[in-house]
């Protein structure tokens, strides 16, 4: 196979494993083998199967967690994935989710969506008068004179990198990828 000239562009290849599973170490090894011996670079390795644990984590990450309670002052609700809270978040209370936060109730406390860095997360509430909204690492404080609004939603405006508020009904325009099924496909 040495007839490929030294200066020729490497060829990107895709390895299809079919219904086989290989570990990350094996993956590395495979890539190394190709890189050392031929003028190939493994672009990606595709397998029809994933570990059960990965699948469960994945499911956990995209599932909507439903809670039916009042988050009172001093209480913190931590959730992996999306949070659907039926109830209020009172001042001094806090809800944190790695995904989106939807509140069927009055948000008066702190809500932190995309807590592990997902900047496309949104926070929606039937009645929005939070002390603070946090999305990923961006924090916004409510204006000091704020009566709050019905059916509002906060998300990061990509152009200014700040949290902005809009009516929930307008969200479909800016975040059409919100629905879980579509997001799964994108992730996959």
């Amino acid at each position: 196979m040495n007839y490929i000239a030294e200066n020729e562009q490497p060829i990107r290849i895709r390895v299809e494993l079919g219904n086989r599973y290989i570990s990350t170490q094996q993956e590395e090894k495979l890539k190394e083998m190709f890189a050392n011996q031929q003028n190939f670079i493994v672009d990606h390795i595709i397998s029809n199967v994933i570990l059960k644990q990965t699948a469960l984590d994945w499911k956990d990450d995209t599932a909507i967690k439903l809670y039916n309670k009042i988050i009172r002052s001093g209480q913190v609700l931590n959730v992996i994935g999306d949070l659907l809270l039926i109830g209020d978040v009172n001042p001094g209370g806090k809800v944190v989710a790695t995904g989106n936060i939807y509140i069927l109730g009055h948000l008066r406390g702190v809500a932190h969506a995309g807590s592990d860095g997902n900047k496309s997360s949104v926070i929606a509430a039937s009645y929005m008068s939070p002390t603070q909204l946090r999305i990923s690492d961006i924090i916004s404080r409510s204006p000091d004179e704020n009566a709050g609004g019905m059916m509002e939603c906060g998300f990061i405006d990509p152009s200014s990198d700040q949290i902005i508020m809009d009516r929930i009904s307008h969200l479909a325009r800016t975040r059409s990828d919100l629905s879980v099924f579509e997001r799964r496909i994108i992730n996959g």
Binding site: S73, G74, P91, G92
Partner: peptide, 12 residues
């Protein structure tokens, strides 16, 4: 009211 809310949380 804030403190009462905290106490109610603890009582629950």
């Amino acid at each position: 009211v804030r403190d009462a809310d905290r106490i109610i949380g603890l009582l629950e």
